[in-house]
């Protein structure tokens, strides 16, 4: 029953995507858009397959993925750590709250030129930018999750002989897991987007660089390929995180 409902939903959902590709094909076929501006979907797909097997493009993907993971990993470690600390200690909370209030709405991408000046055009400046952008959603959702853990869960663990020092890791961290993973999911999408933009802005290497190079030579086909690649990358990573989430949270209601 539910499996069938799922397939029906999937089919309905495929309609707009199919329509979009159909419209795209129609625009090209009926000559409304010149192929130099809007290449036909078949050509883009062909080019995509070709690129995915080429060494240079694979290297671009590798550079992007490395920066993405490095920045995201730093954001997770810092975000979860600081979020837990703010929930556990009123002093840390009082210090962090106003700083986060100021830094969270700051457009981090505006800091990128400063990062370039300080850290250079290599991996470091991009990794730091990704980390800075992904940090806040993870930090805030960790803090929110950790500060709303049900008191009686903590009491139950304390009565069962858990020393106060261990409560943070044995109760608060697992109890806040749903919230933390939601934050990580948002952080991951942000990481995907920011790494690509950073590569476009400085344009040294990576998928963003591939797009900018294509734009400079007006190669419309080559502009679509890196965009679709980063989107697929985002979807794959999101799917992996979702799988990890439903495994880790199998005991929690409403995953």
């Amino acid at each position: 029953m539910s499996a069938r409902r799922f397939t029906i939903d999937g089919l309905i959902g495929a309609i707009p995507i199919a329509l979009l590709i159909g419209l795209w094909q129609a625009l090209v076929s009926f000559g409304y858009a010149p192929p130099t501006l809007l290449p036909p979907p078949g050509l883009v797909f062909e080019r995509m397959v070709h690129q995915l097997t080429s060494g240079a493009f694979q290297q671009a993907i590798a550079a992007t993925v490395f920066r993405l993971f490095a920045g995201f990993a730093i954001a997770v470690v810092l975000g979860v750590g600081l979020g837990l600390a703010a929930a556990a200690s009123p002093a840390v909370n009082a210090l962090m709250r106003p700083i986060v209030r100021v830094l969270a709405p700051l457009p981090k991408v505006a800091l990128y030129p400063a990062l370039l000046l300080l850290l250079g055009f290599g991996h470091e400046s991009k990794v730091v930018l990704v980390a800075a952008d992904a940090l806040f959603p993870i930090l805030l959702s960790t803090y929110y999750g950790a500060s709303t853990v049900e008191q009686k869960l903590i009491w139950s663990a304390m009565a069962a002989g858990t020393p106060p020092r261990q409560i943070l890791f044995k109760v608060v961290l697992p109890a806040a897991a749903p919230s933390i993973l939601t934050g990580c999911r948002i952080g991951l999408v942000i990481s995907c987007i920011v790494v690509f933009l950073a590569e476009m802005i400085t344009s040294t290497d990576g998928l963003g660089h591939v797009l900018v190079t294509a734009a400079r030579t007006f190669q419309a086909v080559d502009m679509f390929v890196p965009l679709i690649t980063i989107s697929l990358l985002g979807l794959i990573l999101n799917g992996l995180l979702q799988a990890a989430r439903s495994y880790l949270l199998r005991g929690f209601p409403e995953v």
């Binding site: 939903d9 965009l227 979807l235």
Partner: peptide, 29 residues
Amino acid sequence: ASVASFCNPLLMVIYPVPKAALMPIIMLW
């Protein structure tokens, strides 16, 4: 529910696309 299942997959595909990265293509058009 039907509008949701109609739109959701498309939005999911668009979600991880960096919007500002569309700038070169949109400028082309």
